[in-house]
Simulated assay, not measured.
Amino acid sequence: MTSKTNAGYFFEDYRVGQILRHATPRTVTQGDVAMYQALYGPRFAMHSSTEFASPGAVIQIPKLDDLITFHTVFGKTVPDISLNAVANLGYAEGRFLERIEAGDTISATSEVIGLKENSNGKTGIVWVRTTGIVHSDIPVLEYVRWVMVRKRDAAAPAPTPVVPDLAKVVPADALHIPEDLDWSAYDFALAGEPHRHGDYTVGEIIDHVDGVTLTDPEHMMATRLWQNTAKVHFDVTARPDGKRLIYGGHIISLARALSFNGLANAQLLAAINAGAHANPAMAGDTIRAWSEVLDTAPTSNPHVGALRLRLVATKGEAGALRGEDGKYLPEVLLDLDYWAFLPT
Rank of each mutant, 00 (worst) to 15 (best):
I19Q: 13
P161I: 09
R43Y: 09
P298F: 00
T229V: 15
T2W: 07
E317D: 11
S3V: 01
A318T: 11
P25A: 15
P79Q: 03
I68M: 15
P159S: 09
K243M: 14
R129L: 04
A274T: 01
I68W: 04
H250G: 06
L321Y: 07
S54F: 05
G203Q: 05
A53R: 12
Y200N: 10
G249N: 07
A283C: 07
T105N: 11
R21P: 00
T213Q: 08
Q227A: 13
A320F: 05
N6C: 01
L214H: 10
A185G: 08
P171R: 12
S291R: 12
H303T: 13
T223M: 11
R256P: 03
S82A: 15
V212D: 07
A271V: 07
L309S: 01
T223F: 05
L181Q: 11
T27D: 08
Y328A: 03
A283Y: 05
G94Q: 07
G121F: 04
L245C: 02
G319P: 09
V86R: 12
F96I: 03
T213N: 03
L321Q: 00
S291T: 12
I246R: 04
A281L: 06
E101S: 15
Y14R: 10
R196G: 07
I251T: 15
T201I: 10
A38W: 08
A189H: 13
R129Q: 14
D182A: 10
L175H: 05
L342C: 14
P343D: 01
T314G: 08
A238L: 00
L67T: 10
I138P: 01
W146P: 00
V140G: 06
A306G: 07
M148P: 00
A23W: 05
P330G: 08
A172L: 03
P280S: 11
R95H: 01
G90R: 09
T69F: 03
P42E: 12
H219S: 14
L190V: 15
G94E: 09
I59T: 11
S48I: 04
L336P: 04
R145E: 12
V209R: 14
P55H: 14
N265E: 11
S253K: 02
Y9H: 12
D65K: 05
P280W: 05
D13Y: 05
H176E: 06
V304Q: 02
A289V: 06
D216V: 11
W339S: 05
D241T: 03
R322W: 09
L141G: 13
A340Y: 00
P159R: 03
A92I: 06
H233F: 14
S136F: 10
K327Q: 13
T2L: 12
I287Y: 00
R256D: 07
D235Y: 11
L190E: 14
D137S: 13
V209T: 13
K76D: 03
V126G: 01
F260E: 05
D325E: 12
R26D: 01
T105D: 04
L214E: 04
P62N: 12
H250R: 02
Y36S: 08
P171K: 14
E111D: 14
P79K: 03
H277S: 07
T314M: 01
L64D: 02
H22R: 01
Y328R: 00
